[in-house]
């Protein structure tokens, strides 16, 4: 349909703009955050790819979870994620977000982030170096441009699944209205 075509190509333009302009909110719970300053500053300068920091979840497109999450911080993370505006993307950063990393046997650390939030991609490493970060973010850009980064839609579609998982570890979860 003509209409759909217009809509579709408009969406493509938006995706393209989105991939060129990403504001990230780095959720600095773990040690991984220390790798971000070199990534942003003159050595690696991620801003040349249109990626920059954001001050608040309202302005951010990308939620960068930089390290392990405890049950306490997960609660905040979910709240922050829900405050972000679609389209929004989650990137797990470091091995802690993948399988708990060195905290694999800790009783109160979240082992697997994508059970709770729709992760677009992980950047592995303990911790990942700036090169790895840039590589990961460039891949994310490509995914966004191709319309593959649809985590926020997955979250909506599988809301029950995510909520169940969240409530399983956290008990009651406060959510945005």
């Amino acid at each position: 349909m003509n209409n759909n075509f217009v809509k579709g190509s408009w969406q493509e333009i938006l995706d393209w703009a989105q991939n060129k302009s990403i504001n990230m909110l780095h959720y600095c719970t773990g040690c991984g955050a220390i790798e971000l300053p070199p990534t942003m500053t003159s050595r690696y300068d991620m801003s040349r790819f249109g990626i920059g920091p954001a001050a608040t979840p309202r302005q951010a497109d990308l939620l960068l979870v930089t390290g392990y999450l405890s049950t306490k911080t997960l609660r905040r993370l979910i709240y922050t994620y829900e405050q972000m505006q679609a389209p929004k993307f989650v990137v797990g950063f470091g091995s802690c977000t993948i399988n708990g990393g060195m905290y694999w046997d800790s009783y109160n650390t979240i082992k697997q982030l994508d059970k709770y939030l729709p992760v677009e991609m992980y950047i592995a490493g303990c911790m990942p170096r700036p090169e790895a970060i840039l590589d990961g973010l460039l891949k994310l850009k490509k995914m966004i441009n191709n319309g593959e980064a649809d985590g926020y839609q997955r979250y909506q579609d599988n809301l029950e699944f995510y909520h169940q998982n969240q409530e399983a570890v956290l008990g009651e979860v406060q959510r945005t209205q």
Binding site: R58, R75, R76, Y79, T80, Q83, Q177
Partner: peptide, 13 residues
């Protein structure tokens, strides 16, 4: 439309 309490509060509810 969201409520007034749903604001950025550094993740705190």
């Amino acid at each position: 439309l969201v409520g007034l309490l749903d604001t950025y509060s550094s993740g705190e509810y």
